[in-house]
């Protein structure tokens, strides 16, 4: 018998800490698969900030650094400059990257630091209990926008890929979704491309992964995927926003 699929070995052989149906664990799993395909398990450093993404500290079996809230790009800058041959990447949520860490991510992208940022966007603050994030959709309910987000007082959803693609230094900026198997495969190819660009010494690479939050959206896992297709993805169009050959 030929084994077609096996769980990657660089994540712990146990359940992740994420809720049932949360695509954070899928994002972690496909990243682990890419790390193994590139044979970088012993040569990679993951920088984790604060948020649901921090649960990766208990889940990954690679070298990791925990950073302050939103400051993962700043820590990763130091890590990469000290260890130029390592594969360095950060894994950040939207409350972390687009709200408190906005200055760090934009400055790092503008400097063209040679590492990869994986941005998991579920348009809500997950860990703290479902507050409004900068990426929350217009009219979406959260614990701090109980009648739905009103653009007059709280603004519009922030599109990080488009924002970062306007800068000169980033080499690869793309947005993928994880709501069905076809898109999962595309996302995996995108993460691989970003890592290869980094290993070739290319420069800053940014991959946004659209995920769900069944718990704080108040939906079942399958309904949350439907919600993504109907509401989230039209606001955050998928695609490659910048791809510079290195």
């Amino acid at each position: 018998m030929e084994q077609l699929y096996k769980r990657p070995k660089c994540i712990q052989p146990m359940q992740s800490g994420y809720c049932p149906g949360c695509l954070h664990s899928l994002a972690t799993r496909i990243t682990a698969e890419v790390v193994e395909e590139l044979e970088q398990q012993n040569n990679c450093i993951l920088v984790l900030p604060v948020g649901c993404s921090t649960m990766g500290l208990l889940y990954w079996k690679i070298d990791m650094v925990g950073s302050a809230h939103g400051r993962a790009p700043a820590v990763a800058t130091g890590v990469k400059r000290c260890s130029k041959n390592s594969l360095v990447f950060t894994y950040q949520g939207d409350g972390d990257l687009a709200a408190i860490g906005l200055a760090e991510i934009l400055s790092a992208a503008n400097r063209g630091e040679n590492y990869t940022v994986l941005f998991a966007n579920n348009s809500i603050y997950g860990m703290t209990g479902g507050q409004m994030a900068p990426t929350t959709l217009e009219g979406q309910k959260s614990t701090t926008t109980q009648k739905g987000r009103d653009p007059l007082t709280t603004g519009y959803p922030m599109r990080m890929c488009e924002l970062i693609a306007t800068l000169d230094a980033p080499k690869y900026v793309a947005r993928f979704s994880l709501h069905d198997p076809a898109n999962v495969r595309k996302a995996k190819a995108g993460i691989k491309k970003a890592f290869e660009t980094q290993l070739a010494g290319g420069g800053f690479t940014f991959v946004e992964l659209m995920i769900n939050c069944p718990t704080n959206w108040g939906l079942t896992p399958l309904d949350s995927l439907t919600y993504m297709v109907e509401n989230t993805i039209p606001v955050f169009p998928l695609g490659v926003y910048k791809d510079v050959e290195v």
Partner: peptide, 19 residues
Amino acid sequence: ACLMCATICPEGAIEVAKG
């Protein structure tokens, strides 16, 4: 053995082998 289940499983709980 299309791997759809293994691809979408968030936990990687499904293993597929081709006969």
